[in-house]
């Protein structure tokens, strides 16, 4: 175990994302270092260069933001490279350390990427908890409807997000948006859906997947 290392993501989309991260890192890195040097030169120059130095600092900050975003690529590569296996939401919640009350949605077998789904559930619980660290921990509820298995995750406090959907679009300066972005990618990779909505001044995460076909229907459908 000590000598073994995790495999690099296999080829396909996962490999491509890894290569893309690598390829983007080089020019971003070079540009950042060159701008750093430019800023240093300007800082040492006569005072009229001050405004220019400020502009360069701004460009460096933009570049740094882009540099952080490319760190999402290996995470997406990990999602893309993971094989889906048969599991149940109850099992995934148990591994994720999220208490469930044995609701029906947690029992059926689904074909999901285990690690990506576990991470997504943890990210959602973590995100909701971080909105009100002193409050009660978020709880999971079975929100299933015909044809869909659905979970609702909500914390008693922590609302007040005007447009929660915006968080999935990686707005600048939102620290947790990257995690939510990866969580949604993980859920949607298995045909699921993840939404963040405001309900009665509470922020609620809704996660759902198509329900598995009842035994016997699968063959009939194919």
């Amino acid at each position: 175990m000590n000598e073994a290392l995790p495999p690099d993501p296999p080829g396909g989309i996962a490999g491509a994302l890894g290569t893309l991260r690598h390829a983007l890192a080089d020019p971003l890195s070079a540009a950042g270092v060159k701008l750093e040097l430019l800023e240093r030169r300007l800082a040492a120059a006569p005072s009229d260069a001050g405004a220019l130095a400020e502009r360069v600092r701004g460009v460096r900050a933009d570049l740094a933001a882009a540099g952080r975003l490319i760190d999402l690529l290996p995470r997406l590569a990990a999602v893309a490279g993971e094989a889906a296996v048969e599991t149940s939401l109850g099992d995934l919640c148990r591994v994720a350390g999220i208490p469930v009350e044995g609701a029906p949605a947690f029992e059926p077998r689904l074909v999901l990427r285990r690690l990506a789904t576990i991470d997504a559930l943890r990210i959602l619980v973590w995100f909701l908890r971080s909105r009100d660290p002193a409050g009660a921990p978020p709880l999971l509820y079975d929100d299933s409807a015909p044809g869909r298995l659905a979970l609702r995750i909500e914390a008693p406090g922590g609302g007040g997000e005007e447009n929660p959907e915006r968080l999935f679009h990686l707005p600048r300066g939102q620290e947790r948006a990257g995690d939510l972005f990866v969580a949604r990618a993980g859920i949607e990779s298995d045909g699921g859906r993840l939404q963040l909505v405001e309900r009665e001044e509470r922020l609620v995460a809704l996660v759902s997947w198509p329900a598995p076909a009842p035994a016997g229907e699968e063959g009939a459908a194919s």
């Binding site: 290392l5 995790p6 495999p7 690099d8 993501p9 890894g18 991260r21 690598h22 390829a23 983007l24 890192a25 080089d26 971003l28 890195s29 950042g32 270092v33 750093e36 570049l63 740094a64 540099g67 490319i70 760190d71 690529l73 290996p74």
Partner: peptide
């Protein structure tokens, strides 16, 4: 390294690298 994978970082340290820095490089 620009790879950003656990494997590349761990391999470098196991091979005897003193340290590794992830690109984009921060001054």
């Amino acid at each position: 390294t620009g790879r950003g994978s656990v494997r590349s970082a761990v391999e470098a340290m196991k091979a005897g690298a003193h340290d590794f820095l992830l690109k984009p490089l921060r001054t």
